[in-house]
Structure formats: structure tokens, C-alpha cells
């Protein structure tokens, strides 16, 4: 990502918070500000929205003034984040069917592959160890009732 791209990403990030703050203020007004003698439900959320709106606007102002940014995402980072979040989401999607034991095993395997653990034996052993640990911790020690899926 070039410098302009980085700057744009941060600008968008700040603009999103300005819009978000504005939305909170609007919704809080609908809830009711009340009076100073008898404050309504919307008073404190509106204050929070105002803090978000003003802070984000100030940050945007400083960012525009500075016209440069030190922080950015590389393509490699974006790919890794995306794959990691995909595995996290996959765990939720498959958990009711596979259950937590198989879900843990497959997710650990996928996590370790995304994190560039080479070969198949090391990820396999890591997944096996993690699954065993989770079984002992959640099932044997803490007696937690987690879904078992196809393992019954």
C-alpha cells in the first residue's frame, strides 16, 4: 500500500467513527435527553456519542493536516487476517455439527497451517495435543456442557 493509500485508509477509519458518533447522537436524541432536573435515558449515551464525534473529527483534522501516516497494512497481513478470521468463523459454523472435540482438532490444524507451520505431522500433533488438553480442561476438570456434535 502506497503512502496515499495508507493515508486514505486512516481517513476512512476516522470518518467512520465520525459517522458512528453522529448516529449515536441522533439515536440518543430519540431516546430523550430529558431536562437537567430530570435527565432522560438518552443523556449519557448522547454524551458518549458527542465524545466519539468530536474526538474522531479532531483526529481527522490532524490526519489531514499531517498528510502522512506511519501505520498501514501489507497485502500479506490482510491475507493472514482474512484467513485467520475465516477459521474463527468456520469454528462457529461447524461447531453444532462437528462438536467441540472435532471442531477444536480441525480448527487448530487450520490455524497452524495459516501460521505457516510446515508439513502435516507437526500440525497434526499440535491439534491432537490441543484437543486432548481442551477435553481434559472443559470436560473432565470443569464439567462444562459443550456440544459434541456427531460424536454424540
Amino acid at each position: 500500500m502506497n503512502r496515499e493509500g495508507r493515508n486514505s485508509a486512516e481517513l476512512i477509519f476516522n470518518i467512520a467513527w465520525i459517522i458512528f458518533g453522529g448516529m449515536i447522537i441522533g439515536m440518543s436524541l430519540e431516546l430523550g435527553f430529558g431536562t437537567l432536573k430530570n435527565p432522560g435515558t438518552g443523556l449519557v449515551p448522547m454524551t458518549a456519542g458527542f465524545v466519539i464525534f468530536v474526538s474522531a473529527a479532531l483526529l481527522l483534522f490532524f490526519r489531514v493536516k499531517k498528510k502522512a501516516s506511519r501505520m498501514f497494512f501489507t497485502r500479506h497481513e490482510i491475507t493472514i487476517y482474512f484467513l485467520m478470521l475465516l477459521v474463527f468463523s468456520g469454528w462457529i459454523a461447524t461447531m453444532p455439527v462437528l462438536g467441540y472435540i472435532l471442531g477444536t482438532f480441525f480448527s487448530t490444524y487450520c490455524f497452524s497451517k495459516v501460521m505457516r507451520l510446515s508439513g502435516w505431522l507437526k500440525p497434526f500433533l499440535l491439534s491432537l495435543g490441543t484437543t486432548l488438553f481442551c477435553y481434559l480442561l472443559f470436560d473432565v476438570w470443569l464439567y462444562m456442557d459443550l456440544p459434541r456434535g456427531i460424536l454424540g
Binding site: F88, M115, C134
Partner: peptide, 12 residues
């Protein structure tokens, strides 16, 4: 080796 384990602990 550590982070996949941490991820699973977060989820569960």
C-alpha cells in the same frame, strides 16, 4: 505453536 492453542482457548 502457541497461537493456535490460544485461539482455541479464546473460542471455547
Amino acid at each position: 505453536l502457541l497461537m493456535p492453542f490460544i485461539s482455541i482457548i479464546c473460542l471455547l
